[in-house]
């Protein structure tokens, strides 16, 4: 094959989801599949993850939820980034809505009906300063939600937040605020049964963050959310592998047929490598559709025309390693890869 290839290992995905599910049980896995399942392929990933023990999905957007409904996925789907005028479509497709503001609640309450109520997770901001009601806004948000629930137009099934993943103490402080917010919600008459706060980082290191569900994203794709431990240390295996063929060989360098036009991140760092078989080669330059490689230490030369270089993934550098070389994280490495590259699911 002469073109770049994304290979998605469903065996590794299944292993990771099952590993995480057993680690956090009885908390459930609400797997994060935003952004085309972190670039891995939305529908395919959800089907495998359901078999492996995920019970619901965090989809971010209502459009993605509708795609999954159309593909026959009936599990709960949780969306939290949408325009106010998308709310009715979310209710039509039984999408769980992450709601932070009174205006959103009003629309949900106006469109939801006792026969098809809006399914709501109220968000409290516990310090990240993104979405979520502030501590001051929270009591009135809960009271309005309780009023709409009594009418039957909405059903508040969850309370949630995002943790900052700064220090364990910061996360514990945020959870303290979260528990206080849940108490206020209950005093207002709400009976949320799905409390969720932690994603991969907190879900792996803090029992207290797990609550009813953990929104595992990057860890389920086999990429560590930490600088250390590595994914391998955590018992996780890479799901995405990106490779490309050697297209040109000279006495001192070779070209590999993949570049920034395929969504491969560039960086200032000189320390950057690919693997061909069991040998390591240094990357010296990245163009739109090719990267220049040279021998590293004792790696054999010349490389064979057509040999496949692993850019990251199984048999090559990890996505988080490549992220570190580029001054970023593995999440950006996997989500940046172009959706137009040929891919196989196996």
């Amino acid at each position: 094959m002469t073109t770049p290839l994304i290979s998605i290992s469903h065996a590794n995905l299944r292993h990771n989801v099952a590993t995480l599910a057993s680690r956090v049980a009885p908390s459930e896995v609400m797997m994060a599949v935003k952004t085309n399942a972190y670039g891995h392929g939305l529908v395919e990933v959800c089907q495998t993850a359901l078999e492996a023990g995920a019970t619901s999905f965090a989809v971010l957007e209502i459009a993605a939820a509708i795609d999954l409904r159309n593909a026959g996925i009936s599990a709960p789907l949780f969306a939290w980034l949408f325009g106010d005028d998308e709310i009715p479509a979310g209710i039509d497709h039984q999408v769980d809505l992450g709601i932070s503001r009174r205006e959103q609640l009003s629309i949900a309450g106006a469109y939801g009906k006792p026969t098809n109520p809006a399914i709501v997770h109220l968000k409290i901001d516990t310090g990240l300063t993104r979405n979520g009601a502030t501590v001051n806004q929270w009591p009135s948000l809960c009271e309005e939600a309780a009023r709409l629930e009594k009418i039957g137009n909405i059903r508040v099934v969850g309370v949630w937040t995002h943790l900052a993943d700064a220090t364990p103490q910061d996360d514990e402080d945020a959870l303290e605020l979260f528990r206080a917010a849940v108490d206020i919600a209950r005093q207002a008459g709400l009976t949320p049964s799905i409390l969720h706060a932690g994603a991969s980082s907190a879900g792996l290191r803090s029992d207290a963050s797990r609550l009813d569900a953990v929104r595992f994203g990057i860890a389920a794709y086999g990429v560590s959310p930490f600088d250390s431990p590595t994914a391998n240390d955590l018992g996780l295996r890479p799901v995405m592998t990106v490779s490309a063929p050697v297209t040109h060989v000279t006495a001192d360098h070779a070209l590999v047929g993949i570049g920034f036009g395929h969504g491969i991140l560039t960086g200032d760092n000189d320390e950057r490598f690919v693997r061909i078989g069991s040998d390591t080669y240094r990357v010296t330059d990245i163009g739109v559709d090719s990267m220049r490689i040279v021998p590293f230490e004792n790696s054999p030369w010349p490389v064979l025309l057509g040999a496949r270089a692993i850019i990251f993934g199984d048999g090559g550098p990890s996505a988080e390693q490549l992220g570190a070389w580029c001054g970023t994280i593995g999440d950006e490495v996997v989500t940046s890869v172009s959706p137009h590259i040929r891919r196989t699911h196996n």
Partner: peptide, 26 residues
């Protein structure tokens, strides 16, 4: 002094208005 986003790497110098934008690295 309000801390913002993952890792709390930023905090506001003064009282301030902050806007959340629906775009990210993806």
């Amino acid at each position: 002094g309000q801390r913002i986003s993952y890792g709390y790497t930023y905090s506001t110098a003064t009282e301030s208005t902050v806007a959340l934008i629906g775009l990210g690295y993806a």
